[in-house]
Every structure is written in structure tokens, then in C-alpha cells.
């Protein structure tokens, strides 16, 4: 299925939390709109992400059993939201879906997708330590790549690099 068909199906099954679809568009020079290239994605309400993933997994026509990737992005220092980015893949139907959720920076919490896709566990751990997003209900919320005592969330755009680590200068 192409993106349009997937989106139609999502609407048809009334997928929980589906907000809108974002398609690439040509830049409009008159309105100073930079346009958007790349691929299409759906925007999903972060609070209902788990239900959405479950719907995608269990619907027989979507059949997205494989969570390929779960990550986040910090678009800018002054932006209010993080993006949470999820890529789903269907082995049988051979189609993909990109999902984006907006998560306010001052309250970056969302439910964990671990119960739907076990594979999300490590991705969420990485996401949590790098951006400071809390995944509620995560079975193992430790740091995965960073040391346990690391201060700050390095992938945030406003992250300040430490000058020393355990007495070792980082200059």
C-alpha cells in the first residue's frame, strides 16, 4: 500500500490518536514558505501512541508488525516540542509508515511502546537518556549508552558540553 492507502485505512478504522497526514509540498516563493521535501508521515497524539501502534499492528490490512525505529528530534532551541519519530514496517504487505508525535519540552512524557513492540525497549532507553523524555511504564528505564551518572541530555539542542568528567578535562 502506498501512503495514501495507508492513511485512508487508518481513517477507516478510526485509528486512535491520528491527528493528520503530512505530505511533501512544493515551496511557495510568494508566501516565503520553504516547502517540505522528503516523505509523507502521519502525526499522532503522543498520549495515545500505544493504542495507535497496537491498531497498526493488529489491523490485518495494515499489519505493521515490525517497529523499525523509535527516536526523537529536537528541532530548535526555541521550539516548544520534541518530535518523537517512529518507523513502522509491514513484512507481509511490504509497506512503511512514518509516525511523528509532538511532545512538549516542559512535560516530555509519553507511554512506553514496549508492550506492543518489545523492540522499542532499547530505542526508548536511548531516547530517554539523549532527550530526557520519560517513557511511562518502561520496564528497564536505565541509561543504555551513557554512563549512569551522566548529567544532562546530550542530544538536546540547548545541551552544554561538560568541561570535565570525573576530574578528567574534556577541553
Amino acid at each position: 500500500m502506498d501512503f495514501q492507502a495507508i492513511h485512508d485505512r487508518l481513517v477507516a478504522i478510526d485509528a486512535p490518536g491520528l491527528v493528520r497526514a503530512e505530505l511533501p509540498r512544493e515551496p511557495n516563493k510568494k508566501e516565503k514558505d520553504p516547502g517540505r521535501s522528503g516523505e509523507s508521515y502521519v502525526v499522532v497524539d503522543s498520549a495515545r501512541m500505544v493504542d495507535f501502534l497496537l491498531a497498526c499492528r493488529d489491523d490485518e490490512r495494515l499489519d505493521m508488525k515490525l517497529l523499525v525505529d523509535l527516536s526523537a528530534a529536537d528541532p530548535a532551541v526555541d521550539d516548544e516540542n520534541f518530535w518523537v519519530l517512529i518507523q513502522l514496517l509491514s513484512i507481509e504487505k511490504k509497506h512503511r509508515l512514518s509516525i511523528k508525535a509532538f511532545l512538549p519540552k516542559d512535560n516530555a512524557r509519553m507511554p512506553t511502546a514496549t508492550a506492543v513492540h518489545r523492540g522499542a525497549q532499547w530505542h526508548e532507553r536511548e531516547c530517554a537518556e539523549m532527550y530526557g523524555i520519560t517513557f511511562e511504564g518502561h520496564p528497564d528505564p536505565r541509561n543504555i549508552l551513557l554512563p549512569d551518572d551522566w548529567v544532562g541530555h546530550p542530544m538536546r539542542k540547548d545541551y552544554e558540553f561538560p568541561t570535565e568528567y570525573h576530574g578528567i578535562s574534556c577541553e
Binding site: 511533501p24 515551496p27 520553504p34 516547502g35 517540505r36 521535501s37 522528503g38 516523505e39 508521515y41 523499525v68 525505529d69 527516536s71 528530534a73 528541532p75 519519530l85 518507523q87 514496517l89 512503511r96 512514518s98
Partner: peptide, 22 residues
């Protein structure tokens, strides 16, 4: 690169290597 974002996954020897570029 014009504004936009996209995910491309390719078959690496070890599995799907995905690059999400914004």
C-alpha cells in the same frame, strides 16, 4: 538541502540501516 525530512532504510549486511534525516 531543502527543508524536509525523510527516512530511508537500506539492507545492510546486518539488517536494516535506517537514516532519518531532517
Amino acid at each position: 538541502v531543502p527543508a524536509g525530512e525523510g527516512y530511508v532504510g537500506i539492507e545492510n549486511p546486518r539488517g536494516e540501516l535506517g537514516h532519518y534525516v531532517a
